[in-house]
């Protein structure tokens, strides 16, 4: 079983995330980044499947130079090889443009060795759109089962459990298929010392747009189908009233709610 896992390099949510004032794009240079936490679940899901049988896990990222860190972390966890698509022209790509690059990279990867599964996270921790998996499935013509809280692969079928609002569903798709996983699916492993050493010798390919047969005019800020006009930091909330409970905290709370007309 060969699996491609899409991993995104994102600015750390614990840092002060912001935008570039020059073109309203996300600041990915001056804010520390890392492998999107939610993609660790995708890597773990892929490793579990391959370890239970055979095959290889390839991690794929589209991002700037530093995005190599995201690949490194996934290789340390146990993935077998990495592909890093980077090209200055990709800067500022929106979701449709990003999915185009990812889709072409997956086509190139699987032309040499077909993949049975493409696994992604449920959403990135920066854009948080949760749309790239569906866009990829659409572009690649793959069946998609998304938001997997459980994943089993048996014979030629992927089966997932999805925890929806009105019901819990079991959903099936015939391989090859795309699966997106939630943070309910597993407990991602920490890289072991052995894993960290081994990762140093694992192959990472670097591809440019030209390697994918794409033209700079098809991606990036100018080719994007959406445009950010402005951004503004949310004004800090006014300091609220904080009381310490001295036996009447609940009453004070109720009085506040009454004053604000919630009662």
């Amino acid at each position: 079983m060969n699996i491609v896992v899409c991993v995104k390099y994102v600015p750390d949510a614990q840092a002060d995330r912001t935008f570039n004032a020059s073109d309203n794009t996300t600041d990915r240079e001056n804010v520390d980044g890392l492998l999107s936490e939610l993609d660790e679940y995708a890597v773990e899901a892929a490793l579990k499947i391959v370890e239970a049988g055979e095959g290889e896990v390839t991690v794929l990222t589209v991002g700037p130079d530093q995005a190599a860190d995201a690949i490194k972390k996934a290789l340390q966890m146990g993935a077998h090889k990495g592909v890093h698509v980077k090209d200055d022209a990709i800067h500022g790509s929106d979701a449709p443009a990003t999915s185009l690059v990812l889709a072409e990279a997956i086509k190139k990867l699987t032309a040499d060795s077909p993949a049975d599964l493409v696994i992604t996270g449920m959403a990135s921790t920066d854009g948080t759109m949760g749309v790239v998996p569906a866009m990829l499935a659409e572009r690649l013509g793959l069946p998609a089962v998304t938001y997997a809280a459980e994943l089993t692969v048996d014979g030629g079928t992927a089966t997932i459990r999805r925890d929806g609002d009105v019901s819990t569903q079991t959903i099936e798709a015939t391989l090859p298929a795309l699966v997106s996983v939630t943070d309910q699916i597993n407990e991602p492993r920490y890289p072991s010392f052995k894993g960290i050493m081994a990762a140093k010798k694992k192959p990472v390919e670097q591809w440019s747009l030209a390697d994918l047969g794409l033209d700079a005019a098809q991606v990036g800020l100018d080719a994007s189908w959406t445009k950010v006009d402005s951004f503004a930091a949310r004004p800090p909330r006014a300091q609220g009233t904080i009381v310490t409970d001295e036996g009447d905290g609940g009453e004070k709370l109720a009085a506040f709610l009454a004053e604000r007309k919630f009662i």
């Binding site: 909330r237 006014a238 609220g240 009233t241 904080i242 009381v243 310490t244 409970d245 009447d248 905290g249 609940g250 009453e251 004070k252 709370l253 109720a254 506040f256 604000r260």
Partner: peptide, 14 residues
């Protein structure tokens, strides 16, 4: 906007 420093098992029922 409003906070109570206290034990929820006391504050909420009240």
């Amino acid at each position: 906007d409003f906070g109570v420093v206290g034990d929820l098992f006391k504050v909420l029922p009240q």
